[in-house]
Amino acid sequence: MVATISWKFTAREIAEKPELFTSGHRACAGCGPAIALRQIMKATRGPTIVTNATGCMEVVSTIYPYTAWKVPWIHTAFENAAANASGIEAALKAMKRKRRLKQEKVDVIAFAGDGGTFDIGIQALSGAAERGHDFLYVLYDNEAYMNTGIQRSGGTPHGASTTTSPGGTDIPGKTQMKKPIADIMVAHEIPYVATASIAYWQDLLIKARKGLEAEGPAFLHVFAPCPRGWRYDTSKTIELARLAVETCIFPLWEAIDSEYSLSPQSKIMTLKPERRKDVREYLKMQRRFGHLFKPKFEHVLTDIQKIIDKRWNKLLKKCSMT
């Protein structure tokens, strides 16, 4: 289902490619999602229409009358990015059938955050995936509702303190686990699902391109740290994104026609386990996990490691790595 990759993204080629998501957007300094969007728009292969769910990226990129988008772009609501993409794709199909489409092929990308994907948008996403629309859905995951002030989402990890799951004296932040959204999308048996990280731009670009080339729905889960919400210095965005992979809390993989395979950045953790880092290293850099380093909640650190190990082992099995 996915075309053979006959191209490579070199730094030079990408640097010279025009910016479709431009400067002048008003994301916070050090914004991970803004990096994700920039990089993905560099992976486009031709005429593209973008739809965006309500959220940080929608807000910061189109503060009226300004727009940071060089491609046709539409936002309508929070929970419906996938439904919008369905409509755009249906319109393109109908107009092509009626010979009213100028372009031979127009790609459709839907961007949504974790709130718009794990939570309020999952119904529209599941419906669009089941119907088989040809589009790339990009989840930029900063692990909470950052646009409205750091509230917990289904994508917030266990133990994280948010404004609606605060690390209190009795409760150590979010008590539930992060929803395995990408696996849920694999279960839809769509042609392409992948996880990616802004720390590995080439891998991210290749996956975005594969998603665009896949005929049918593609889902890309991009890990995109948020300095404001995770409470770390703005310069550490890429470092944290890298650490999430190196600690296996956010492994990189892809599933082509539901066949899982580990991406090189995560595969190395099985081939050379000594490279795998302690999750504490990742957690201690972020004040959203600060409360876990108090004696009372230290057991949560153990729990987090258990969750990671359990999910990592499950993933290895799916990737036939055990």
């Binding site: 419906n80 996938a82 919008n84 119904q123 529209a124």
Partner: peptide
């Protein structure tokens, strides 16, 4: 192109986006 959506919310959302596409 007939899109049999999973909800009315998505049905109208798809219509708005399709209409915006021309």
């Amino acid at each position: 192109e007939f899109v049999c959506t999973e909800s009315e919310h998505s049905a109208l959302s798809a219509c708005v986006a399709a209409s915006a596409t021309g």
